[in-house]
Design a protein around this nucleic acid. Structure first.
Lengths: 248, 248
DNA sequence: TCAAAAGTGTTAGCCGTACACCCATGC
DNA sequence: GCATGGGTGTACGGCTAACACTTTTGA
């Protein structure tokens, strides 16, 4: 008990008066036309990591929740409101930011690339969609970034964690639909390309079709619109639309 | 761009000089003999939430990572070192602590109940193993706590999140082995009781046995010791032991 | 005619679930 | 003999992976 008290007090008191900064970083994933998984990043034009690429992020306000801070950042970067975001993980290594102690709560969102307005914020001179690839269950050192861009802070680690989580969730959630251009009119083909981009592997078309029919249509998450799609093949296919989640 | 800048700066500047506090809360789960899922909690003897029950936790030090802070807390509460802990989620509602803004990073660990030394720390007058139960995919208001104890802060929400996560991980990880009394000598029966306590439902014994053989033994995570177990049945069964993870 | 995508069909294997049934043994 | 846990067997249904095959139609 005395040992425990001593340990407790030493750490407790130290932190009572000095607080770390708390930030959110946002991973905004998209899939571009050729089927590549990309991430919205900004190039820093101030130290530290000047000229390196970083995830959009910023410090949280005292009067906003973490989720609100993440949504605010997303809006600042893309102009988009009301998008589904999800907390990924919280990164808290002591030296992850060379300036001062910063705890960063990472969030991610999936957005169709088209029609996003993207602005560089303060501290950055440009933004870009950066292509990323990672082997199955890959580690941070296996992450490949577009033309080997240098990444700031521990963002290589954050991205790796996010890609692995994203892939894991593909199999048991409908998370990928966030990347559809038009949730009211899409072809199975589009969704398959999205899955392939995220997983970085080709999928068997007949089997993917069946997966879609059982996991989405049969479960009431999507239905055929009745319209024919001629965008991707000479032979007509069907358009589908997402349905509002079946609230119980 | 101007709109974005203005929004950004207002929130950014505000947080530059005032920082939230950052804490870790630890969920230490155990299963007691009758097969009940329990959580180590402390009773607060200072406001706010005086006399209410809370998760052990505390503010992080400036020179320790989040993981280190969580391990330190765990050691203070149980005297145990080197236990596997896992980050659960970060809770950051503005008013989750009435005193001041506190961001809490929750961690959880699974520990066998026996042979834990548990100390109440400062701000608490006692500790207890509190039985909890929750319907499948239950929400915070469906969480049942031992004799309806009052819970402090948003800990009802934190616990609910943890129980649901724990249950989810049961099916695709070996997380439950953390609750075995002796990882070098256990019977399938013990593991089944652990699963049943976590899931709060009876499992089919023959099927559980097959699950164990294929998921643990065939995959090299466990092996029979060769010794017979007579603790749970008149008829002898086998003892098993865990094997070190097959590093690749 | 060829290529590319839309579909249908078929196989084999794996897994989870639900049972029926026998074994061993202490009470 | 009965209850309790140990253990084998079996059968069904759902799902995945792999792959063969037909259809449609523009270039």
């Amino acid at each position: 008990m005395t040992i425990s008290d001593a340990q407790f007090l030493s750490a407790y008191d130290a932190s009572q008066f000095e607080h770390p900064s708390v930030a959110v970083d946002i991973l905004i994933f998209t899939v571009d036309i050729p089927g590549r998984l990309e991430l919205l990043m900004i190039r820093r034009d101030i130290p530290p990591f000047c000229n390196a690429w970083a995830l959009p992020g910023g410090f949280i306000g005292m009067k906003e929740s973490l989720d609100e801070a993440a949504r605010r950042k997303l809006k600042e970067e893309t102009g988009l409101d009301g998008v589904e975001i999800e907390q990924l993980y919280t990164f808290g290594a002591v030296d992850r930011d060379p300036r001062t102690r910063v705890i960063s709560v990472a969030y991610f969102a999936l957005l169709p690339k088209a029609s996003l307005h993207v602005f560089p914020g303060p501290g950055a001179d440009r933004t870009a969609w950066v292509g990323i690839s990672l082997p199955e269950n890959g580690t941070a050192d296996q992450l490949q970034v577009d033309s080997g861009l240098e990444l700031a802070f521990d963002h290589r680690q954050i991205i790796t964690t996010a890609v692995n989580r994203l892939r894991g969730k593909l199999s048991y959630t409908d998370i990928a639909v966030g990347l559809l251009q038009d949730k009211n009119r899409f072809a199975i083909y589009e969704l398959q390309k999205i899955y392939e981009a995220i997983l970085d592997q080709k999928l068997d078309t007949p089997n993917f079709r069946r997966m879609f029919l059982t996991s989405f249509v049969s479960r009431g998450l999507a239905e055929a619109t009745g319209e024919d799609c001629l965008e991707y093949s000479k032979r007509a296919s069907k358009y589908y639309r997402l349905l509002p989640a079946p609230q119980k």
